[in-house]
Simulated assay, not measured.
Amino acid sequence: MFNWAKFRRAKGGIKIHICWDDTMMISDIVNITEAKLHDRLGLKQLIFTKGTVIIQDRAYFDFTLMQQRIRAENIFVIRIKTNTIYKSV
């Protein structure tokens, strides 16, 4: 179905990044990429509208991106990388 989604010799793979609008009960952004493309590049560092709840994996652990989302007043949950050095304030 997606001839451009080369993964292995006999397999193809895709990743789907979706932004779900809870009030309309429909997705307002759907982005389909090749499986081999890094997750963080899937939505190209997209900053969402105020109040958007973002749930993401460790692949998106990027302090610059987090700062941009804080400024945009997004709400986000992210898994921390195991080698991160931090201090609770």
Rank of each mutant, 00 (worst) to 15 (best):
I54T: 05
K11A: 08
Q45V: 11
C19M: 11
F63C: 07
D22N: 13
A72R: 09
D57L: 09
F76H: 04
K81E: 04
W4F: 15
H38T: 15
I26F: 08
I85W: 06
K87Q: 11
T23R: 07
K6D: 13
Y60I: 01
R58S: 14
F48A: 12
Y86E: 04
T64Q: 09
I78C: 12
N83L: 12
A59K: 04
I80T: 03
E73A: 06
F2L: 13
T82K: 12
F63G: 05
K87T: 04
D57R: 08
V77C: 12
F2Y: 12
G12C: 07
I18V: 15
R9N: 15
R8D: 11
I78F: 08
N31C: 10
S88Q: 15
I32C: 10
T82H: 08
T33W: 02
L65D: 04
R9T: 06
V53N: 05
R69S: 04
E73L: 04
A5I: 07
V89L: 15
D62P: 10
D39Q: 06
G13L: 09
K6E: 14
F48E: 08
D57W: 01
R79F: 02
D21V: 10
T52F: 04
F2W: 07
A59Q: 09
A59D: 12
A35R: 10
F48I: 03
G42S: 08
L41C: 05
L43N: 09
I55N: 02
D21G: 06
Q68I: 02
I78S: 09
Y86T: 10
T52P: 07
A59T: 03
E73S: 07
T52N: 01
T82G: 07
F63Q: 11
I47P: 03
G13P: 07
R8V: 04
V77L: 14
Q56K: 10
Q45Y: 10
I47R: 01
I75P: 00
F7R: 13
V77G: 09
I85Y: 14
M25F: 02
A35V: 06
C19Q: 14
K15S: 03
I75L: 15
A72Y: 01
A5R: 09
I29R: 11
T33P: 03
M24A: 15
V77P: 02
F2R: 05
W20H: 05
R69Y: 00
G12D: 02
C19D: 06
K36Q: 05
N74G: 06
Q68C: 11
R40P: 00
F48K: 06
N83D: 15
